[in-house]
Design a protein around this nucleic acid. Sequence first.
DNA 1: ATGGTCGAAACTCGA
Length: 259
Amino acid sequence: MKIATFNINGIKARAEALVTWLREAEPDLVALQEIKSTDEAFPHEIFEGLGYFIETHGQKSFNGVALLSKLPLEDVERGLPGDDGDEQARWIEATVVGKRAVRFCGLYLPNGNPAPGPKYDYKLAWMERMRARAAELLASEEPVILAGDYNVIPQDEDAAKPEAWREDALALPDSRAAFRRIVNLGYTDAFRAEVEGPGHYTFWDYQAGAWQRNNGIRIDHMLLSPQAADLLRGVTIDKEIRGRDKPSDHVPLVIELDA
DNA sequence: ATGGTCGAAACTCGA
C-alpha cells in the first residue's frame, strides 16, 4: 500500500496540480493538510472521479485536513481530543482495511510562531494532547500511522541553514523535545528508518528563492507504531513537484507499507 | 537589517 502525506496549501488553488500528482503517483491513501476550505466547499467530486473515498475536516480560510483513500475509510474521527474549546481543524483519523487494518491519522500541527507567545503556547499544548492520543493508539497494538505537517524540524541536519531557525517555533528546543516525547513512546520516524544524513527536505519557502537555493527543511513526517514499522518497505520524498508551475510550498512524503 | 511570496478572502492575516 502506497501511503502519502502532502500539505497542499489550499485545495482550490491546488486541485489541478493535485490531480496530476495523484494520477502519476497513484497513492492508495493520502493525508492532506491546509485544505483552507470548509467541508462543503471541498471539491469532493474531482477526487471521487479518480476512485478515491474522501473525508474532510475543514474550516473557512485556514487549516483543514482531509483523507483520500482507494479503500473505504472506516470509523472516521475528527478533531484532536483533549480540548473541547479548540476550533482549529487539524486532526482526522480513520481505519483502512487492506491486508491489515491500519489506523491512519492525518495531522496539521500548529506553526507556533511567533515564539514566545500565545501561538507557541498553543503549539506546545497541542503537542501534549497529540502525545496523549498517540499513547492511546499505541495501546491498540495495531499498525498506526501519524502522518502530516508537524511544523517541527527534528534535528539541525533537517535544515539547510539550521542557524536561521534557531529562534523559530519549528526548531526551538521545547518543540524538538515535544516531538521526541511522541517518538519516544515507541514510534518510528519512517523517513529516518530508511535514510541517514542531511540534505532531505519536504518544504521550501516561496520567499527569497528558497527552492532555487535548496534552502529547505524537513517538517512533514510519518510516525509509525511498532506494528506499522514492521511493514515498512520504502520511503521517498517527491521533491520534483516543487519545481512545477503553481506548486505548494510542501512536497509529498510517500511510504510503501506491506498492508 | 530587511524584504522577499503565496492563498483565501476581503481591503489583512497566517504561513
